[in-house]
Structure formats: C-alpha cells, structure tokens
Design a protein around this nucleic acid. Structure first.
Lengths: 151, 151
DNA sequence: TTCACTGCAAACCTTTTGCAATTCT
DNA sequence: AGAATTGCAAAAGGTTTGCAGTGAA
C-alpha cells in the first residue's frame, strides 16, 4: 500500500467517512497514476481491472476526495490529480489554502505538483500594483518533460 | 465603435472572414463586457437585446474568435474574455504565444488582463529546476477587486 | 452568383438528482 | 441495526455534427 493510499484512507476514516470498496479503488488508482484523470477515465481504468463502479459514484467520490483535500483539480486539463505527499513533513494533504502549481507534459500527459520558488513575491507585487486583495492563485506550466525530451 | 470592435472586425476581414451580423453582435458584446462570459451567457445577453442568435452559432463564433486570437479562455471561470488592446502599441491581438495573466474578482466577477512583472524569471527558474522545456504557462489570480473592497 | 456562415434538428457527452438497495461500522 | 454510500434511471446541461437555407462579398 502506497503512502498516498495509506494517508488518504486514514484521513477519510478520521473524518468519520466510510472506507468503501469504490472509494478504495479510486484512491488506489490515483495513487499509482502520475497523470490527471477525468471521471470517465477513472471509470474506464477501473472497468478494465474488472471493477464495475458507476459513473455517478465516481463523481461523488471525486467530490468527497476534493472536499477532504486529497485531490487537486488541474485547470489546464480539467481533470483531477492526487495531492503530493511529502515524506519528510507531516502531510500537508489536509490543508486547504496551500498553493499548488503544476508541470504538465504535453506529450505524455504526466503531471507533476511542484513548489514554485519566487512566486510568492510575484503575487505580492501583483497585489500591490493592482489593488486587488488576492487570496488565491493558479499557476500551471505546459511543456515537455525531461523523459519526453530525450526521445 | 470601440477600439476592440474596430480592431477585431478588421482582423477578421483581413483574414478573409466575413463580417456577419451574429459575429458583429458577439464582438460588440465582448467589447463592452469586463467579465468573462460563457456561450450561454452570450446568447442570453444578445437575446435580451432582442437579437436572436442560435447557441450553435455562438459556439462557432467563439471558436472563430479564439483561432484569430481575439478572445482568451479563462481557466478559472471556464469562460471567454476579450483580449486586451494596448492603445499605445500596435495591437498584440494577433499574436499567439504571448502570455496572458488574469485578475478575477470573486465578488463582481470582473476580469482584468494584466502583465505580470517578474513572472518570466520565475518561469525560467522553474524550467531550469525541473528539466521541463516549458513553452506555455497559465497564471490567474482570484481575489477581491479594489471597487468591491470599498463596500 | 458564389461560397461562407447561420439556423435547425438531433445526437452526444458530461454532470446532477431522487430513490431504492446495499454495505460499512 | 442504523446510517452512509452506492447503483440505477432519468433528467439536466453543455457541446458537437450534418445539412439545408441565407446572406455577405
């Protein structure tokens, strides 16, 4: 069982939510997938493993995971992605206002969640210059990942 | 006729496209709207002005305007927004790989297209650190605009 | 006049809702 | 046992396609 699976299940349990078979299946799929997935892609992947889960349930499970900060919604792709787990620190999964940035490979579709050095001061400067009270920002990079660059 | 309308129409014409009534109506609506709009919102707004334009046509017009770099797609809202026109410079509308950043007010929904100082070096640093060849980035800020802050 | 563009009908895909049946705890 | 969750059916949205008719150049 991966760290993600383990953590995710325990967070659900601690929130008084049930560990059902469909939920576990979706979590395990997310755990082993380094791309973002749509509801339908999740359904297809589970089907191919011989697990029939209704599309409606997928949507509800996605909502549940999102509310519990176990997945991100990637704007560029319109799909969802597991939250990154730091081995060292106590997991930041359950924090809401932490900011998340993504590197998305246009070729293989892999998504990497990254910390982006320097972005905070850019946001502050923008806040200052614009007069907006900025409470959230979305930053996503599209390109070609190192692996695909080799080919 | 606003600068946006004028420029947009001339760009269409120069591309060999026709200036039809529905296209002009959509362009004029975008010109006077400082929010992002969905296809359905565009249809509703036109209807209320007494102009019946089919939803299908709205979609096709949106595609056309997007291909000609006359509108942006705002990821946070999932809607479209007119491209900003600089009075001073020769218009940058028709450039494709120019990067665009948005300030979105969570209260009134207004969207402002901004240049973001400092972001280029952040992108370069990320490119360096990650090994990705980054060719595009998306940066959107959510918050409360100066006007809404006063209330 | 001609061809691009629109409108209409219908299909398609995605997401949501209500309710009865299931299954975790 | 009891309550949360799932599956099913159906509806509600959003978007696309094909084709005949319209209208801009």
């Amino acid at each position: 069982m991966t760290l993600y699976t383990e953590k995710a299940l325990s967070i659900l349990k601690n929130s008084g939510l049930r560990i059902t078979k469909p939920r576990r299946l979706v979590i395990e799929l997310l755990a082993k997938t380094s791309r973002s997935l749509s509801a339908y892609e999740i359904k297809e992947a589970l089907d191919q493993d011989g697990h029939k889960v209704d599309t409606v349930s997928i949507y509800r499970i996605i909502d549940c995971l999102y509310e519990n900060h176990l997945i991100h919604r990637v704007l560029t792709t319109g799909k969802v992605m597991k939250c990154k787990l730091e081995n060292e620190h106590e997991c930041e999964l359950n924090q809401s206002d932490h900011c998340h940035h993504f590197l998305i490979c246009q070729q293989c579709g892999s998504v990497e969640e990254v910390h982006c050095p320097g972005i905070d001061s850019v946001v502050s400067a923008m806040e200052e210059a614009s007069g907006y009270r900025i409470n959230r920002h979305y930053l996503e990079f599209s390109g070609i990942c190192p692996q695909c660059n080799l080919v």
